[in-house]
């Protein structure tokens, strides 16, 4: 288990707030050490959402490592951040665990992925005309199932995706859970999946 996580932010669907709004937002999302280390990024609207996506993605990884709390952004702390490459890379601390995350900041969306070790995985972003939750879920589930079916030569009619009691999605073949690490995200007009290969 590589504890894969992902998170996508549709930049057209984030709240446009005033400076006082984001001051309060930031105070709920970032810890004092994060303010100290990454103030420049926190005060930049796009980078702020990138840090958010990194935390949310790392949270999904943390659930696979046993975290049973709801997402509280301040329970995850970004310990280091490298913005020198094409994608941001970060190390996020949760308890005694360290989760690595990368984040692409594009014109329309921000996409973060997280993992324990950089093993092989497939990640794909989809654009949806609908923002309806179930329509998006259906589209991203279908796309992930099709890709896994092609990759592993599974009978597509026997494949499905279900979430467990912790809301972690998993692939099922003929109703048997497969040992394939999977994470799914959607927001606004975008959705994405990542799974281990």
């Amino acid at each position: 288990m590589n504890a894969l996580g992902n998170d996508i932010v549709d930049l057209d669907h984030v709240k446009e707030g005033s400076d006082p709004f984001y001051k309060r937002f930031n105070s709920h999302v970032f810890t004092a050490p994060e303010f100290s280390r990454f103030r420049m990024q926190i005060e930049n609207p796009r980078d702020r959402w990138a840090l958010w996506a990194i935390k949310e993605s790392a949270y999904k990884s943390s659930v696979k490592l046993g975290n049973r709390n709801r997402f509280n952004p301040k329970s995850m702390e970004i310990a280091s951040l490298d913005c020198s490459g094409k994608e941001m890379s970060a190390v996020v601390r949760f308890g005694n665990s360290e989760i690595t995350a990368t984040c692409a900041v594009e014109a329309e969306y921000i996409y973060a992925t997280s993992f324990i070790a950089p093993n092989n995985f497939i990640s794909r972003i989809l654009t949806n005309s609908s923002t309806d939750y179930y329509t998006q879920s259906s589209l991203v589930y279908t796309a992930a199932i099709e890709q896994l079916s092609q990759l592993k030569n599974f009978d597509i009619s026997q494949l499905s995706i279900k979430k467990d009691s912790n809301q972690v999605p998993g692939f099922y073949l003929d109703n048997n859970l497969l040992e394939v690490d999977l994470s799914i995200t959607h927001h606004g007009h975008f959705s994405a999946y990542i799974f281990g290969t």
Partner: peptide
């Protein structure tokens, strides 16, 4: 789980 509120929006709701 029921209302399918994206966790990104939980902070919006708090605010």
């Amino acid at each position: 789980n029921d209302l399918k509120i994206n966790s990104a929006h939980v902070v919006d709701i708090v605010l």
